[in-house]
Nucleic acid binder design. Sequence first.
RNA 1: GGUGGCGUAGUUCAGUUGGUUUAGAAUGCCGGCCUGUCACGCCGGAGGUCGCGAGUUCGAGUCUCGUCGUCACCGCCA
Length: 583
Amino acid sequence: MLRTHTCGELRLSNKEREVTLCGWVQKSRDLGGMTFIDIRDRYGITQLVFNMKTDAGLCNKARKIGREYVISATGTVKERSNKNLNISTGEIEIMVKELKVLNPSEVPPFTIEEKTDGGEELRMKYRYLDLRRNPMKNNIILRYEMAREVRKYLDSIGFIEIETPVLIKSTPEGARDFVVPSRLKAGEFYALPQSPQTFKQLLMISGFDKYFQIVKCFRDEDFRSDRQPEFTQIDCEMSFVERDDILETFEGLAKHLFKKIKKFDYEGTFPRLPYVEVIEKYGTDKPDTRFEMLVQDITELAKGKGFKIFDSVEYIGGICAKGGAGYSRKQLDALTDFVRKPQIGANGLVYVKLNSDGTVKSSVDKFFSREDLNKWAEKMNGVTGDVLLILAGERTKTLFALSKLRLEMGKQLKLMDKDTFAPLWIVDFPLLEWDEENQRYHAMHHPFTSARKDDHHLFATDPGKIRANAYDLVINGVEIGGGSIRIHDKQEQAEMFRHLGFTKEEAEKQFGFLMNAFQYGAPPHGGIAFGFDRWVALFGGSNSIRDYMAFPKNTAGRDIMIDTPSLLSDEQLKELSLKVVNK
RNA sequence: GGUGGCGUAGUUCAGUUGGUUUAGAAUGCCGGCCUGUCACGCCGGAGGUCGCGAGUUCGAGUCUCGUCGUCACCGCCA
């Protein structure tokens, strides 16, 4: 070993010990007669001290050392005369006898400090330098600790981790695949998995009744701060279970992580809300339940009073912002602009202020009596000091806009505390979703999801109404995971493909291997997959998963550090029987 | 695919209605001084293809168009 200790561990109790430290130069302070160097590694920072009087040659050497040089320093642990109680090693320093430069460093392109001066792109290009910074380092450690706790917990209840292949087969459903050309079979391609879905089902058929895997998945769609081309799932599957067994098992996992990572015990069980109810109450299927502010339907109360806009719409609903009566005209106008943004899509905003002096002021006073407005307030649980914010229009669109407005108000009224965690299960998702573009149904979760038994009769009459045995785990408005009880019967699976518009031949070609397997004793099974990066980001207090991946890609799917995607040589293309067509 | 923001010293940014000699600030960097600093201090210095390309104009960092890069949102993401 080149070192006897790390830069984070020496204390007063080590006084007078002869030690050797290795690390990077955080900063040096040259005072002329003496020089201080802060040496940093993963564990902390320790101050080295050089004195002109003691050893002029060594001190001069120290003065020449720049930021981020890798050095080793041997010397004696001394008590500081001027202590720095802000850092854990601040009571001691190393009186250096021997100093080695293990490797010099160029001046880094941004400062490697708690708060860097570097912009996002630059930090990405020099990711290895950014990762030296404490906040980034801690994110990566958090990620590791969560992965470790996931493995510990699942292991403790009998799950085993099994790897599945990365070079698999492209399938038509779902997201676009990343593909890999085959050299040995010209014109043929592998695909990278969007998830190990079919493999984990096959493992159930093999008898591995409790499987999990922390695994990379790949989806070639457009990227966001919470979506990367390659991301990590905690992929899980169990046999001989029903929905509630899965929910209980993985609620246990979530509670384990809350306890071990966030140090709090979640009391009771997570709320479970059916999809239709959650849409009605929050306008979205991934509600942030850290705060109430439920959406209320006032269509019946507000229609037929002569206000044309309301009379002509399908749905009128609103939220009650507690303590919002103090909102100024300007603030309410800003909210109106907010909901009218094309991404939100509302036409306008009606407000009703329940003023603290007992008066009621609304933007529709002309059309509604005080009594009418009181009824709205009652329905929406509004009391003196609140403001009611009301949108009207087509039901689905209006609920969507209300969900965005609710989040905005939650933000403005500071109801979204980073250290509060509000999990819930959304259950009874629709099995099928009508796809206008292709004029057919597609699976809302995936085509292996089973329908609830009590809804099977709807296949013939109203497929859009069928509820699936599917569920999502949502925490603080973030979709953390989702899964379903799967189909394990060949006939039923074939039927599902038929409803999704596959011909028998297509289904056979794409998923024949799975349906064949169903003929050899497939156990009832189901599972769930969690977006590991999102979960880590949530616990880390951010919504950008990039900050929790060691080497992420940008929103264009580019790794600007290694500069890829990149061109292949003509030789490589030829070997792969590929020709690039310039668009 | 669509909408919008941003692009000016190494870095983060300012730069007024298009017009004042040499495009500024902070920080970083380099040199000098300094024996208890820890955001060290003081003095001095270097550092610019104003993303790129056209255009408008007597004159463009500033206006227009295109293009590239980047970020956010919509679509998309079973």
